[in-house]
Structure formats: structure tokens, C-alpha cells
Design a protein around this nucleic acid. Structure first.
Length: 663
RNA sequence: GCUGCUGUAGCUCAGUGGUAGAGCACUCCCUUGGUAAGGGAGAGGUCGACAGUUCAAUCCUGUCCAGCAGCACCA
């Protein structure tokens, strides 16, 4: 059966090599080393491949035996075996349920089932109880390689159509691997544990059930996906559940309500009603970005929101993006008509769309007047309000909305200037992220997709320019082959927040296509009309989304300069009211957002209320402060208070309130 | 958009086939209290919308709208 040598040499992590008969399994090797290792072993690493203890080894290799002490393989196996154990439990309770796939994901696993009836939360409890029985039974796990015909035949017999489809996707020449957990069988590439009892019975939890398309294809069957989380110990599970609770407390939708930042309502789904507090954050951030862009060589412009379809047809959006656009039909015959009834009697309808992007309008600005190569690079920036008809299921608080404002800009430049502009933009963006408290970010470099326009030479050149730019500014990147836009490659910038979540914010895209479609030209040194390149770029992405990220990153406790109410001056006795007004006036004169709280409430009450509202500084005033012209300062989250002279406090807070670019 | 769940006072949530309740918030009164909720009284709801079943619907059924989770989407 084996063509290879009858003896193989396996090298262990300590460097020792030993000879074994070919076809030996890691289980045999572990048993050969010691009985305790044989018991503790969970899997092996063979030449870097995660290897089931039951799989034979047929060639020389580096080998390491894994135990539960090895985190990565242990978690992988626990979660993967739990996927199978859960599927087994489900089929034992409801034999008619069809199984599909059940991979390991971050912190756990899921398994997709085809079942008529929806799984209920009570069902999850039943399944979990059954899983614990299966674990307690310590059922052996075994595996075999089957010829594909036999496997297909088997699944025809058990009426598992999804499994047959999975086998069809396996290359013809490969046998099919089967696994058994006790008597329950599943198609699986493995590896797995030795028996179900190796799974910690108290360190997993079924979390939720949700729909998911078979093979991720929205045209195909909707399945029911059950999510579970699993760890090595009960403590780790508890920690994870606690972390989820903490994340829920940071939810910008909850904090937005508590801090009175914004609201949304059903008459305007996916659009934000900004309240004074929220709008204060927005305008502060926008002011900051405006200064940064000016310093970065951008000229700010503003363009229309409602634009005739002709422009969208010319730009190509009408063909490719119409399903995402808000279309506005206006009866032009009513022009000058004041009688509403007459207006309804349409004669002539003009079709407009709310702009989903600013780029076509920016080209219109570029196209006004003749441009010279001396004008390039021309950097046009707009805080552009866009509307996109996002699918209802995609909406999420202010993070994914239908109406939003981008910190958008388009750089018109020559091919030679792309690299320099890209490098400038990366530095520009890195500087802003650092000042806003996100020093670490990741750049993803998306290269030419299969469906694309433009010559290979042009793609080669532009991709090279971006890559050189990233290297020139000394950044790392990850490659996303084939993920670029049809017209050009792009860089996407990802921030990681305080609890490890990743957010896509900045973007930089090279586009030779739109200038072509919209007829943008400049006069080159040789006197010829020449096509410029257009670079689409954004740093924050959208203000809405970025503010959502800031809220969640800081759990509502925004940096002082961004906080909507920076200081509340709270009186302890009403005799301090006049002094409180004076203090607030002094703070406001120094550019600080301050308010008085002279309500007839105890200081405890006021402190609690403003703390809950995340006001960074509370100044308490009683008889003593009035007498001494001092303030008692308390910072959010600190119990300690400090008594300071008024003038000193105002000066210190004024410094602290200075935006990072003006320090 | 798809699957499932949810929609009751400003917020968080109970509840019932005979048109509703709590806590907090709000208003007023008492209290002037030194750093995370002082006391009392009061006001506040077309029970998401529209149909249907019923003598009677907030409750049952259907459709729609919105929200939540996941999937798909995010040229």
C-alpha cells in the first residue's frame, strides 16, 4: 500500500529524532513515550499541520505532541468537537434535522442546520443538556477515509443532501474523511479529540440562533445557525461573558441615549437626529478635521445633494449603484405653480438622485475652467453629505446609516504623482489617528480583481506606486489580493479599539475611470489635453460612524476636548448661585463648554447625575469656595477632590480643552 | 433584502380577551444638604400602524412599519 520507505524519522521539539515504522500514528508515539502522555495527548503538529492522533504518518517529519496545555490546538479541538457534539445532540433530539457545516470561529463555533421549525431559546437549553450527557459518556472519536462514492452512497441513505454537495466540492482524486463521535457520524476534515470526555463540560455555552444562507449565498436555502462559545476552563468562559457585558455597556446606541447625544426614529430609518450634546462632538471633530485638511493642502468645497440622473448615468452609478440610491422624482411642470392640487397633476417628471458619493460632483468642480499641469495635484475636500439606500438589515445605530457625512476628498493628479500623494495621505491619516487616540492601525492593500478595466501595465504601475508609498513611509500592510475596485487598487485603514474590535475607517483608492467617464482633462506641459488620475480618499470615513467608534472606544468618557459638556458647576448651597454664574462665565470666556447646576438637590445627587452623564469635570461650590474664590474639582471616575483657586482652574482646563492639533 | 426575535409612559421593564402597572426621569411642595440617588404629592400611555376574528382586542390572526441578532450587502 505504501510506496515510501518502511521506516521514517520523526524529529521532536527537543531536536531528538527517532525511527518509526511508516504509518505510525501520533497516538502510538505518545503511548510509546509514556502512558500519561498517551492519556493527555489531544493532537499533534506534524510539519506545522494540525494532526489528528489517529492519522498515520508516512514520511519524515517534525513532530510535536499537543496536550491541553497548548492553547491554540486545545481551543481549536474543543470548539471543533463541540460543533460535532452539538450537531449530534440536535439530531438525537430531532432526527429529521439535516446537518450542514460547523466550523470553529473566534471564541467558539457554529453549526448550520436545515430544520422546518425554528430553534427556540428553550431548545438551546435542551441541546446544551444533551451535549453535557454526550461529554459525560466519554464516547470514543474515530475516523476513516472513505472513497467518495461510498460516502455519497452513505449520505443518500441517511438523506443528508448538504453533505453530498460538500463532497462534490472536494477534488475528485481525494478520499473523503469521516468522523464518528460515538455512533454519530459526520463528514469532516478533522482533526478531533480522542473521546468526547476530553471536552470541558462546564466551559461552553450556546449563545444564539440566527439565519444564515447555505454556502453564504443569498440566493440559496436559509439555514438555522446555532452559535456557541467555548474555552478551556469555566473561568475563561466567565471572563468572556463578562467581557461581552462590558462591551454591551459601551454600545453607542445606549450611551447615545444616556448622554443625550442623538436619537433615531422610524420616520427616518438610518438617519440621525443629532441633539445639542452630540452635535457638539460632531462640530468639534469637524472643526479639527477642517484645520488638518487645510494644513494638509486641501481646498474645501461643497456640492449639491440632489442631482439629475444624467450625471449618474455619465458616472456609471446609474447602472451599477442605482439600487443603493434614493431616487427623487420631481414634477417640473409645477415650476411657479402654487396650487398643490395642480402640482399633483404631473406632466413632466425629472428624475434626480440624492448623491451616494461626492466624486462625480467633485469632477464637475474640477471641470470648470481649464486646468494646467501646474494646478496638480489638486486636492478638493468636502464634508459631503451622502444618502445611500442601505439594506434594512445592514443598519446599525449611527455606525451604518443611510444618511451620513464623509470627510471626503479627491486628489486630481498625474500618474507620476500617485506615489507621493499616497505617502502623504498615509502620513496625514496616521497623524490624525494618533491625535484621536488610535496610534495602532492596519493597512490592507487590495489589488486587482478578476473583473477589471484598464491594461495590465497600468495596474502594474499603480499597484507598484501604492506599495512603494507604504514602504516609503515605513508602514506594514496586509495584502488582499483581488479585493480592489474594478478600476483600481486601494488601501483600507483599520482601527482597533479598546476592546479589540476592528473598524474600517480610512480609504485610499486610485481611479483612472471616473475622470475618463466624466471627461476630466488638464493641459500637460506638451500642450495636450491629458486625463488626470483621481484619488478617492477619506480618513475618518464618515462622521457618524467615527463618532460611534469614539463613543464605544471611550465608553462614553470622551477626551476633554471632545466632551460636549466639559464642566458642570454644581452648587452645594443656593448662596453659591451667583458665584457659580461667575465661574461659568469665566470658563466660557476661556472657551470651555460649561453649565451651572443650581437645582435644589444635594451635591450627592448632582455628582451622581453628571457622572452618569459622563461629564469630565464637576466643580462644586459651597460657602467655603464663595468665601475663598476657589473651586472644588472632581474628575469623572475619581473619588478624590481638589480645592483650587478659580483662576488657576480656568487656565488649566483651558489648556486641556485645546484640540490636539493646536497644542 | 433573508431567517428568527421584539415593539406597553421620556428610559428600563411587568401585565391582562372586558381600553393598564412599577422603578427611574418629569412638575410642584418641604428640605440648603460637602462629592454616585433626602422626603412628600402630582401629572403622564390611540399598549408601533392598518385590517380581520369577537358582544368586546393592547392581548388572538394577517399585512405593513421600525428595532435587535446573525446572514447577505458595504461598486
Amino acid at each position: 500500500m505504501h510506496d515510501g520507505p518502511s521506516q521514517i524519522s520523526l524529529t521532536f521539539p527537543d531536536g531528538n529524532a527517532r525511527q518509526y515504522a511508516t504509518g505510525i500514528t501520533p497516538a502510538d508515539i505518545a503511548a510509546d513515550i509514556s502512558t500519561s502522555l498517551a492519556k493527555k495527548a489531544i493532537s499533534a503538529d506534524v510539519n506545522g499541520t494540525h494532526w489528528d492522533l489517529q492519522w498515520p504518518i508516512t514520511e519524515d517529519a517534525q513532530i510535536a505532541i499537543n496536550t491541553m496545555k497548548d492553547d491554540a490546538p486545545a481551543l481549536e479541538l474543543i470548539r471543533h468537537d463541540l460543533a460535532h457534539i452539538m450537531a449530534r445532540a440536535v439530531q438525537e433530539i430531532w432526527p429529521e434535522v439535516k446537518v450542514t457545516i460547523g466550523p470553529v470561529i473566534d471564541n467558539g463555533w457554529y453549526y448550520d442546520f436545515d430544520r422546518e421549525e425554528p430553534f427556540t431559546p428553550e431548545d438551546l437549553g435542551r441541546i446544551e443538556a444533551r451535549m453535557k450527557q454526550i461529554i459525560a459518556a466519554r464516547d470514543p472519536v474515530r475516523t476513516e477515509l472513505w472513497p467518495r462514492e461510498k460516502a455519497i452512497e452513505h449520505y443518500r441513505g441517511t438523506h443528508e443532501p448538504y453533505k453530498i454537495e460538500l463532497i462534490d466540492a472536494i477534488p475528485e482524486d481525494q478520499p473523503v474523511r469521516m468522523y464518528w463521535h460515538g455512533d454519530w457520524q459526520d463528514l469532516c476534515r478533522g482533526p478531533h479529540l480522542q473521546h468526547t470526555g476530553q471536552v470541558p463540560a462546564d466551559a461552553f455555552k450556546l449563545m444564539s440562533v440566527a439565519g444564515a444562507y447555505w454556502r453564504g449565498d443569498s440566493a440559496r436555502q436559509m439555514l438555522q445557525r446555532i452559535y456557541g462559545v467555548a474555552f478551556k476552563t469555566r473561568d475563561d468562559l466567565k471572563k468572556y461573558l463578562h467581557m461581552l457585558e462590558e462591551a454591551a455597556k459601551r454600545d453607542h446606541r445606549k450611551l447615545g441615549r444616556e448622554m443625550d447625544l442623538f436619537h433615531m426614529q422610524e420616520e427616518a430609518p438610518g438617519q440621525v437626529f443629532w441633539h445639542p450634546n452630540g452635535w457638539s462632538i460632531y462640530t468639534t471633530l469637524q472643526g479639527y478635521m477642517r484645520r488638518k485638511q487645510r494644513a494638509g493642502g486641501y481646498a474645501e468645497i461643497n456640492t449639491p445633494q440632489v442631482v439629475d440622473r444624467k450625471l449618474w448615468e455619465a458616472s456609471g452609478h446609474w447602472d451599477k449603484y442605482q439600487h443603493h440610491m434614493f431616487i427623487v422624482e420631481v414634477d417640473e411642470s409645477r415650476d411657479g405653480e402654487t396650487d398643490d392640487a395642480a402640482v399633483r397633476d404631473k406632466a413632466q417628471t425629472r428624475i434626480n438622485a440624492l448623491k451616494p458619493m461626492n466624486c462625480p460632483c467633485h469632477v464637475q468642480v474640477f471641470n470648470q475652467g481649464l486646468k494646467s499641469y501646474r494646478d496638480l495635484p489638486l486636492r478638493l475636500a468636502e464634508f459631503g453629505s451622502c444618502a445611500r439606500f442601505e439594506p434594512s438589515g445592514a443598519l446599525h445605530g449611527i455606525m451604518r446609516v443611510r444618511g451620513f457625512t464623509q470627510d471626503d476628498a479627491h486628489i486630481f493628479c498625474t500618474e507620476d504623482q500617485i506615489q507621493e500623494e499616497c505617502a502623504r495621505f498615509i502620513d496625514f491619516t496616521a497623524d490624525i489617528y494618533r491625535e484621536l487616540g488610535f496610534p495602532d492601525f492596519e493597512i490592507k492593500f487590495a489589488t486587482r480583481p478578476e473583473k477589471r478595466v484598464g491594461s495590465e501595465a497600468s495596474w502594474d504601475y499603480v499597484e507598484g506606486a501604492l506599495e512603494n508609498a507604504i514602504k516609503a513611509v515605513g508602514r506594514d500592510y496586509t495584502l488582499e489580493p483581488g479585493d480592489g475596485a474594478f478600476y483600481g487598487p486601494k488601501l483600507d485603514f483599520y482601527l482597533t479599539d479598546a476592546i479589540g474590535r476592528v473598524w474600517q475607517c480610512g480609504t485610499f483608492q486610485v481611479d483612472p475611470n471616473l475622470p475618463e467617464r466624466l471627461g476630466a482633462t488638464y493641459i500637460a506641459p506638451n500642450g495636450e489635453k491629458t486625463r488626470p488620475f483621481m484619488l478617492h480618499r477619506a480618513t475618518l470615513g464618515s462622521f457618524e460612524r467615527f463618532i460611534g467608534i469614539l463613543i464605544e472606544e471611550h465608553a462614553g468618557k470622551l477626551p476633554f476636548w471632545l466632551a460636549p459638556r466639559q464642566v458642570v458647576v454644581a452648587t452645594i448651597v443656593s448662596e453659591a448661585d451667583d458665584y457659580a454664574a461667575e465661574v461659568v462665565a469665566a470658563l466660557r470666556a476661556a472657551g470651555i463648554r460649561a453649565e451651572t447646576d443650581t437645582r435644589n438637590e444635594k451635591i450627592n445627587y448632582k455628582v451622581r447625575e453628571h457622572s452618569v452623564a459622563k461629564v469630565p469635570v464637576i466643580l462644586a461650590l459651597g460657602h467655603r469656595e464663595v468665601e475663598d474664590r476657589t473651586v472644588t474639582l472632581r474628575r469623572l471616575g475619581e473619588k478624590q477632590t481638589r480645592v483650587e483657586p478659580l483662576a488657576e482652574t480656568v487656565a488649566a482646563l483651558a489648556t486641556e480643552a485645546t484640540p490636539p492639533d493646536q497644542r
